[in-house]
Design a protein around this nucleic acid. Structure first.
Lengths: 343, 343
DNA sequence: TTCTCTACTGTGAACGCTCACAGAAGCATG
DNA sequence: CATGCTTCTGTGAGCGTTCACAGTAGAGAA
């Protein structure tokens, strides 16, 4: 009654069995397994046949023990997890990374650093070399886990530009600034001249960049930035409502708003409509993210789409390069303006 | 220029270093690491001090090589991935499993079996013993991956009752039938007597069970099941619309509908309202899942909540027990009726 | 012939750990 | 005093790979 799960599992074949089957030595089998250089075609074929026949699969533990690599990578989320787990874009990212890694036969270990305990455990786990590198999702500044990993020399690729980490960390990000520029240009092209902005948190690169894009386009159009049209937010829906009310109070003649997230834009829509302003007739609204909130909103939000699928494949490419000892360049990917009804 | 990532990483301490530091042998250190039986308090303490001092972390590859265990488990998704990745409940499940495993110091490997190639690769990976067990998310019948794993004797715990797999597979599920009973009883308690049902796909256990619960309660209330009130669906929003139209055509006097998923219920609401029926005044509607669709709908859906957080912790508990050689019982968890506006 | 070079192959050692075993020490029992 | 039992400790072997090295065979050059 205690060994119910052992039935059917037998000792798997080793490289030794394959060598005997193929009539060669362990060394030759190993060479075939690792690229096949300096192996005669005959031996090559014999080994492959033996592998097929025996159903041999390499024992990764034995390999790792000697190579010092684990041939696996971690996917580390240090953000407050609710925010990301509720964001479908996060799912696209996670799925994309998993699949891109699978193509290289590299397993992905999911790591969630919520509590202090978990953070310490995960840091030890990673610095002990149990993974070869880490895909990092963490946008708030001064993340201690990320800093510790960087200091320990763990290959790291961040999603979005990390704040406070040295230049040793590669990252892959959407071009926030350019996305913001596109949106604000679009609003101007509709003839609006009193364009407000609801920013993201300004201790995150995304928040800073999106605001910078807004200012650049106004500059370029010869419009002075009016401080009364700039209102801070924190990406949440509630902060969007508050911001919109402040905006209407400070600058009643506002005729367009660039909102740095779709969630906030939902709040902005609600506040505007409550105040009797029609969207987009009286005030045009542009969001950011192309989240499901964008189509759920009414009117449907014009917004900026980030290329999450490409972000994931690029993150994997860059991380594997970094693990391989290269020093790959950071990647900035273009965004896309999605026109719907709100602007 | 090619070894940028090696800077800062040094050879980590081994069990040997700890033994020397503590003035004991490798064996004693190993015993401390694995539970501390047959170790004197003095040695125990000396070893722990040495571990702290050296910063030693066990090399899991070396351990796995000899124990044959990997001390990791896979989280395998064989469903069409879109469906699950878009479902926030799936996120809760994944997060819950990751955290519950982390508490046991067991890493979770995320595995997505989308294409045929991926399926073959993953099957080989798992049957080769690279993970000790698998948390399985796969509800459609006759899943070949699951069957192969079961046949290979891999410890398996499914989420939801698996169809077509033998009794060797444990599972953890919400009590679909009881949830359905609760909802239909609730509809009857509102005085409704012409209660229809939009079923889920009847080749899934969930679909079958929810329908069974509906029939049981009608029986219990002495009401004959009217075939015209039973309409099939496939959990999608579109199928809900179609089903509602069929329902109104076949049984115009319908005054309540139990819909086997919130998504379908959204479709049902839309069709009913288009036909001029008021919800809940003319027709009461009950959903299932308590997904975000439930609160996004108007009126907000009365629905059945499944305890996804508990499902995940139970899945982990059962899997670890099974890996440990026990034969744990299957777990059925209670659901909860969430009353909102639609019924 | 003899030497060198290239292409290939086999062998022992090592990776860091656990496990089985042997043995020591302490104490009670015959 | 021998014997047995319990509690604790050290040692050697081995898990399945890779890696460095030595060695072989054959081709071409001197």
């Amino acid at each position: 009654m205690t060994m119910s799960n052992t039935g059917g599992r037998r000792r798997p074949p080793t490289i030794h069995d394959v060598a005997r089957e193929a009539g060669v030595s362990r060394g030759t089998v190993s060479r075939v397994l690792n690229g096949g250089h300096y192996v005669s075609p005959a031996a090559q074929e014999a080994v492959n046949a033996a592998i097929r026949k025996t159903g041999y699969v390499v024992n990764r533990h034995a390999r790792s023990l000697i190579t010092g690599r684990s041939d696996s990578v971690g996917f580390l989320l240090t953000e407050p997890q609710e925010r990301f787990f509720e964001d479908p874009n996060f799912n696209v990212l996670l799925r994309g990374c998993t699949q891109a890694l699978a193509a290289h036969d590299v397993p992905l270990l999911l790591m969630l650093a919520g509590t202090k305990d978990e953070r310490r455990r995960i840091t030890r786990y990673i610095t002990a070399g149990h993974v070869d590198g880490v895909l990092l999702v963490s946008s708030h500044s001064g993340d201690p886990v990320a800093e510790e990993l960087r200091a320990a020399g763990v290959p790291l690729v961040a999603c979005g530009k990390p704040i406070g980490l040295g230049s040793k960390v590669s990252y892959v990000a959407a071009d926030d600034r350019d996305g913001a520029r596109d949106m604000v240009r679009h609003l101007l092209s509709l003839g609006r001249r009193r364009v407000g902005v609801v920013t993201g948190p300004l201790d995150t690169p995304g928040g800073v960049e999106r605001l910078a894009g807004y200012e650049e386009v106004l500059d370029e159009a010869g419009i002075d930035v009016d401080e009364r049209l700039v209102v801070p937010g924190d990406y949440s829906r509630a902060s969007g409502e508050v911001a919109a009310e402040r905006l209407m109070a400070q600058a009643p003649d506002v005729d367009a708003v660039f909102v740095a997230s779709d969630l906030m834009a939902q709040g902005v829509l609600a506040a505007l409509q409550r105040a009797g302003r029609r969207v987009p007739e009286d005030v045009a609204v542009g969001g950011f993210d192309d989240s499901p909130a964008a189509v759920a909103a009414s009117p449907e939000l014009t917004t900026i789409r980030q290329p999450w699928d490409r972000i994931s494949t690029e993150m994997v490419r860059v991380l594997l390069a970094r693990i391989g000892g290269e020093d790959p360049a950071t990647v900035i990917l273009p965004t896309e303006l999605v026109k719907r009804d709100s602007a």
